[in-house]
Design a protein around this nucleic acid. Structure first.
Length: 290
DNA sequence: TGTATAGGTGATCGACAGTC
DNA sequence: GACTGTCGATCACCTATACA
């Protein structure tokens, strides 16, 4: 579990799912879970209690019935309200566990990936989590276990998509028009969720099934920006949010945001925001205990 | 140790021509 | 019209270095 030293922890697949495709925890949070991010997807359902989930520097209240999905591109921390506790289901899984269609819907840039389930939908989702929990306890997992997990996961994700609320983000905010050709959307999706890794134009082009030359042209015409510029924007936005939300050194933020050298990160940051990375900091120390 | 700057190199962009 | 390949120009990125 994340330590509380003001530096975000990176939770790796090797730490939690060496051989498995997923892992489920039912836990009660009595205090603050410090800033962290993961290499896997995290689906959380609040069974009881009230608290605050801070995702990419933005506070989001959570309570019984709240369901949210975090991707490897998100960093977050969660804490119960003072004097309260949070009882949650926490399901972590690999990207390939998601149905392709659901992945396309839920990982779209404008999808809030947060839902408040009412008294009707909530028990059904708790039941789906309980099913995954029961299967995880089975002594000998078999093909049936895998299929039941996929079925339960699909059910939860569909509920999330149907009940998703706009947390304030929008395509316009993200600089993305309403409609893109499917091949460009695939590439955008790929970029959105892999921008912290080294991505070449060719990688994104492969996602769209186009040659790199033609993809470059279509991408620019469709999004109004070049591939490089789009990638740079994502990395800078992520770095700025992390600068505001954590006490992580600039050099660390540079690397986790997808930049390979500090020199380049600082140059690009200064060009975009008009000041060096440290100058815009609020001096935020680790979050107050909840 | 963390941050900032300068200069060189290679990857990418974008215009254009050509093919199917 | 959709797509690919070529090639010169541009810019992102890296290395080296300096400073607080």
């Amino acid at each position: 579990m994340p330590t509380d030293r003001g530096y975000p922890d990176r939770l790796t697949i090797d730490q939690f799912m060496t051989d498995a495709s997923h892992c489920l925890f039912r836990q009660t949070l009595h205090g603050h879970v410090s800033l962290h991010w993961h290499e896997f997807y995290e689906l959380t359902f609040v069974l009881s209690g009230e608290g605050v989930n801070t995702v990419n520097g933005k506070d989001i209240p959570v309570r019984a019935g709240t369901l949210f999905l975090l991707t490897p591109a998100d960093f977050h921390e969660i804490r119960p309200l003072p004097g309260r506790q949070l009882e949650i289901y926490n399901l972590i899984y690999r990207e390939e566990c998601m149905d392709a269609e659901l992945r396309g819907l839920l990982l779209a840039p404008d999808c809030p990936r947060l839902a408040e389930l009412d008294g009707t939908a909530s028990p059904a989702i708790a039941e789906a989590f309980a099913l995954i929990e029961a299967e995880a306890r089975a002594a000998e997992p078999d093909v049936g276990s895998r299929l039941l997990f996929r079925g339960a996961l699909d059910r939860i994700l569909v509920a999330l998509y149907r009940n998703a609320q706009d947390g304030g983000s929008s395509r316009a905010e993200a600089g993305i028009p309403d409609r893109h050709p499917v091949n460009i959307q695939n590439a955008l999706l790929y970029i959105q969720h892999h921008f912290r890794e080294p991505i070449a134009l060719e990688d994104a082009a492969r996602q769209s099934g186009l040659s790199s030359h033609y993809f470059s042209e279509r991408f620019r015409l469709t999004t109004g920006t070049t591939f490089q510029q789009y990638l740079l924007n994502l990395r800078l936005q992520y770095a700025r949010a992390l600068l505001r939300a954590s006490a992580l050194p600039v050099s660390e933020i540079c690397f986790v945001s997808g930049f390979n050298t500090l020199a380049h990160f600082e140059k690009m940051f200064k060009r975009r925001y008009g000041h060096p990375p440290n100058a815009g900091r609020t001096g935020r120390s680790p979050l107050p205990r909840g």
